[in-house]
Design a protein around this nucleic acid. Sequence first.
DNA 1: TTGTAGGCGTTATCAA
DNA 2: TTGATAACGCCTACAA
Lengths: 352, 352
Amino acid sequence: MASRVGVSVATISRFLSGGNVREETKIRSVIQELNYRPNIAARNLKLGRSATVAIIVPDISNPFFAAIVRGAEKASGDSLMAAIVNTDSNSEREVSALAHLYGRVDGAIFVPTKESDHEGGLAHFGRPIVFVDRYLQKEKKYDTVLADNARGAQLAVEHFASQGHSKIAIIAGPLDSTPGRQREEGFRKALDNSKIVTNLNYVVVSDFTQAGGYAAMNQLLDLAEPPTAVFSSNNLMTYGALNSLKDRGVSVPSDISFIGFDDFELSTLISPKITVINRDAEAQGAQAMRALMWRLENLDSKISKHSVIPVNLIKRESVTIPRTWDLQNSPKVKDRQSQTSDHSNNKEKVNE
Amino acid sequence: MASRVGVSVATISRFLSGGNVREETKIRSVIQELNYRPNIAARNLKLGRSATVAIIVPDISNPFFAAIVRGAEKASGDSLMAAIVNTDSNSEREVSALAHLYGRVDGAIFVPTKESDHEGGLAHFGRPIVFVDRYLQKEKKYDTVLADNARGAQLAVEHFASQGHSKIAIIAGPLDSTPGRQREEGFRKALDNSKIVTNLNYVVVSDFTQAGGYAAMNQLLDLAEPPTAVFSSNNLMTYGALNSLKDRGVSVPSDISFIGFDDFELSTLISPKITVINRDAEAQGAQAMRALMWRLENLDSKISKHSVIPVNLIKRESVTIPRTWDLQNSPKVKDRQSQTSDHSNNKEKVNE
DNA sequence: TTGTAGGCGTTATCAA
DNA sequence: TTGATAACGCCTACAA
């Protein structure tokens, strides 16, 4: 290559890194002609970096994680390439992914499955890691970008309560995962705030899967006194719970009111349209990528950054006043007619 | 490291590649102690390979592509790491991904967006590529793993026809993509086989997106004489088409019968349960990974391999006999009662 | 602006 | 079984 142009390899290298060289046009044409591409491995070896980062997620087919990934990719620009790695919600694969990635990437965006320990695996990785949506409680020094999970649960409970519900259940995610734990904690706290006593039968801990949501809803329906409102902690469990309700002939919202965490593609296709707690997952992914890129430029900075993505309630059609309201003492609801005819601003109503 | 043990680097290298060495235990302990990990970039440079392959897909949030990826990952074992790259159905990003991947991976599984030319970009990539689901018509020498698209369209048309439909429409995908083209061709051919004359108004070419499916279905419903049966060429367009039907108050299947290509997560949650053409997307991904791994071991083999993944019809609830059957001459349907009461084995019935 | 030369950390060859 | 050594292809002082 260099001999072909009549200059040294140093000149070629200079040209490649944007330096000024005399034979620029000739070099360009020879590159074309020989189809020359610099050897990446050699460059990585010399420079000690790869211009690649990993995005490690438990399940890429979950639309929520897919959105995180999309956001992160968009934010990466084209100075960096993002390699997505799927761990299948499997802790062992998580460990082996981190090990395999060592030396191949400059950093990682990591959505761990559990909050369990990685036993020094992270330190050993030796590169910046930004935790998204989930983090490891033991590891304080890493950046995090979490959703406002407790607030989300609180919004759901408050919305139920504003409609007169007091028999409110949660289908919780695994308590050893960040969102599972924080949403369950937020749920309990919100009940306390609303002066509703927590019925332990109404707290079903499940596993964030569709099958788990199905089983959990069945369990709630089998109760001697089933809840009148159910909050599902993630999208997949929402699918399962809705399937259960359908299979058992329980209609939403007339028999049971329902709110799910995380919006989903078909939420408007199914009947009724499901009221959800939502957050901007793409923004969350983008924020994580920006944090990672900043840290790659500031490897020596010691302070860790923690961002929280806001959540909001999207009211649709799956929540109404409880059917059995007249069987119970429900002080907030005086007039059923006016209550049913005004779904749009219940909060204001309650505050009157 | 080597000096720490008292041997040469060559011995360490031998140990690392599984050779027999005397100080094995001591080396092991020093590796632990120093937290030593071989430098990947140096190894890649020396060996000329990276033990990494790329899986390039247009849209990872599409459940179908997600399934392909999962299948491929599972088949890769742990000798290889798979890096997923999302192109966002954007040809430019496709080109730049290929360029960025050059030298970083040993090969790729590629799901291109269009059948358009890559102008030597592939040859320049210089590594094995296996095309999945879609391929480039101009490039003959690469391995492919396609679905039996034409057969799928044929199954849909035959099922409609067996129920007495003759006003059959297709919402087609882009004709410059493999599945879009092959499904549309299969559709036309199947109509011919069933002696149904093709009404050009019933062929709406769309873009494989939800919005596209929505618009396409609207277009069909606006026809002076709308179809009685609609075949949608992919899952996203199916979502959109169903949304359109819902918004317009057209009920499925009593007003219009419907079949979609590719099964989807919530197909059983929505009413009615949608009849679909399905294929095993994970198996397709796995097959692609096996083909790629084989080729990495047989770089000199010149023959290209082409696999076809079978499709099948999953009968659910979105197809029935046309409502307006009595307004038409439909020779195959003599007795409405017996026809409606037997949905399970129409094919046998027709063949009697 | 250019060339020379050393070194990044590994593997492979060859002698010992 | 081991050690010395030469690549692998690139970048970067340093000297010209």
